[in-house]
Design a protein around this nucleic acid. Structure first.
Lengths: 396, 396
DNA sequence: TGGCTTATTTTCCGCTGTCAATAAAAGAAA
DNA sequence: TTTCTTTTATTGACAGCGGAAAATAAGCCA
């Protein structure tokens, strides 16, 4: 298999086609009539839009499932055929590369990990290529082509350019990752910031479906935040946004690596919790798992460390809510392993600090396995595949 | 003149027409070619879009001004004929009603004020109607019709519905202001939150022209913030956004009327400054003008009060920048009378607290006469006039 | 087998914006 | 003065998108 027969493109020739497809993708099987209603189009337009997508195999028709209203012509449900195309998503951290194979509906089919021993871009790229190759080989069993690769990296990433401008954890600067990975793998590649990719996944396939304004807050080593406003992911004028971790909460708080005092991350980030846990309990605390254990054991003072972290997170979320009034806030992240230690304080301090109707925001939590980050990268790849115009408007 | 011959509507029959008009409105006189480039349309489309607007008098053609490139056919500049239509903008505060008459380019032609003695909606409405009538009468001298009325009120305002849901300063709840004012004046009425209206004015006619992501921060009795993201003003899912005044900066700070401690407004709002000035200097301080005077006199401790306020504002702005990454932040408001006392601290603490590329945001200040608030309301009315579809899609 | 109801498709049709060719308005060159 | 060059504006043919309405399909129920 000597690589690619010119990359397959999505037959979205008109805005209506894109819109109908994404509507069906996000809102599950729909009748044509319902799809028309949700997309604000006429039923005739749906019929026309659906036809080429059916022909290309991206949509499929279910003989309707159940519970029809017993009157009138039965509806034919239209749904996305997830098995039509596969995507690979990769999350790169300082310690590991995690890769998943998903279908077109962004359901995880396989997952793989590889430790990172050398953080140099070249070495990491090799790991990415190896995992991609491995998943691609196994993907043959599913009888569908792999049509895109998404890579998620923390830090300052320019998705349009496909470059990592600066990633502190990896110590990368100006790495043209998309181009390199595309050369190595022969796949279309999307590179995005990890939190943004996760936000895209929530927007299209998760708790953000159908919402035009919501926030995703991730709790873990860092505290991050993805924003969707007016139905679009916010990237900021300089490519960076959602830095909730460096919102300063308390001028008398602990020093943060960014140079300020009392950043949310300096209170509630993994490292901050471990450090403080050592100070408070006077014990050895190897990592955040150990810190959680101490709190669960009921070691004096340990719970207060988490209470304080939860309060910081809650106040950070309240700040976000006060500033842009999201309909929902989705809290997520590895840090949620300790969620039972946090939860109450997060909600309490959010409620206390949210002003007026910002308190109406629906604050949810969502457990997040580490593979979910990689799934976010796959979601970015899927999004790019669907929205990339088939007319050659430059190359990414 | 027994009121209205059916309200005049803007002949924007297609998206292209709207787009061309707003492009010319914001970017001054343009050649058709240049307008096409900026709007992303073909020159042919511009010619077609411009024709009906010229015919209706909204656009005018300048025989080109100066400095042509001396080669090729001279360009004909197209500009908005500001004198074609007039608008009235009204800002309602707890103390005063301020009204301005503007032209279509949102230039202020006349301004009037009336003190508020009774804050009841009915009484305020009478003042609004009186001022509107007065300005309308004088507007006859300008030989152009008044085509809309904008009203700006602080608090929770539903622009689409035209209702004031809750305004703390006026103690209004659920006042259907647009409908009432429309009945009284016979004009199309837009009601919006004051900060949002000001943001619209900046977006279309001010320092936000051409930017898709910026913030407006107002300093005065309250501290407010208007956001434009993805080229649209942010209203939040519940109709409230930009509450920078209640971003909590310091858990050990002074108590705010919202019940929390250390809100920006509780440190840097007019009332907070006056209160603290009394405490620090031990003198009588009647109002914020008196407070400014004390600081300028060099009374011991007085300057520190402003330094502290400036620091709070700067940190609030940094929070906005960290979260949204705006291209520009426009600081404005009556509070700027004291700008020389603030400026350094605002910028310093912004720079210190902005994380990474958020510090690249261009922070500007813009003196703001009180009439500018009313002009913002006029801008909202202009926007509504231009974008309201001529096809009757309900009534506002 | 009709009749009723709802879903989907078909058949135009208006409308928009692009394309390519053409006109216009200068200065420059001959 | 005439012709050429260069840039801007306009025109008219045209393709294609999506809407409206009418036609058709596909079940239930008498």
């Amino acid at each position: 298999m000597r690589s690619t027969s010119r990359a397959e493109t999505f037959p979205a020739h008109t805005p209506a086609v894109s819109q109908i497809f994404t509507t069906v993708l996000s809102h599950g099987p729909l009748t044509r009539l319902e799809a028309a209603r949700r997309a604000g189009l006429s039923p005739a337009a749906v019929t026309k839009a659906v036809r080429p997508l059916l022909a290309a195999g991206y949509l499929a028709e279910d003989a309707d499932g159940e519970a029809r209203p017993a009157l009138g012509r039965p509806a034919n449900l239209v749904r996305v055929d997830g098995g039509r195309a596969l995507f690979i998503g990769v999350k790169v951290t300082g310690d590991e590369v995690i890769a998943v194979l998903t279908d077109l509906c962004c359901r995880i089919l396989l997952a793989r990990r590889l430790p990172v021993t050398d953080r140099a871009a070249r070495a990491v790229l090799t790991s990415v290529a190896d995992l991609t190759h491995e998943l691609r080989t196994e993907a043959e069993d599913f009888g569908a082509p792999v049509l895109g690769l998404g890579i998620a990296v923390s830090g300052d990433v320019d998705r349009a350019e496909g470059t990592v401008r600066y990633s502190p954890f990896l110590d990368w600067r100006d790495v043209a990752l998309a181009e390199l990975a595309a050369m190595t793998t022969g796949l279309p590649v999307v590179v995005d910031n990890d939190v943004r990719a996760l936000t895209v996944a929530e927007q299209w396939f998760g708790a953000g479906v159908g919402l035009s304004d919501f926030a995703v807050v991730t709790v873990g080593a860092g505290i991050g935040c993805g924003l969707v406003i007016h139905g679009q992911v916010v990237s900021g004028a300089h490519g960076v946004a959602g830095e909730i971790g460096h919102v300063a909460i308390d001028p008398a708080g602990p020093l943060c690596h960014c140079g300020n005092r009392g950043c949310v991350e300096a209170i509630a980030g993994d490292a901050a919790i471990v450090t403080r846990m050592r100070e408070v309990t006077g014990r050895q605390v190897a990592d955040s798992a150990a810190a959680v254990a101490l709190a669960h054991e009921g070691v004096p003072g340990a719970r207060e460390v988490y209470a304080r972290a939860g309060e910081a997170i809650g106040r950070g979320i309240a700040t976000v809510a006060n500033l842009f009034g999201p309909e929902r806030v989705i809290i997520s992240g590895e840090g949620l392993a300790a969620y039972d230690l946090f939860a109450e304080q997060i909600l309490d301090s959010f409620t206390a600090a949210a002003f007026g109707s910002a308190a109406q925001s629906d604050v949810q939590t969502r457990p997040l396995a580490f593979e979910e980050w990689a799934r976010g990268a796959a979601a970015a790849a899927i999004q790019s595949f669907i929205t990339s115009s088939p007319t050659p408007t430059g190359k990414g």
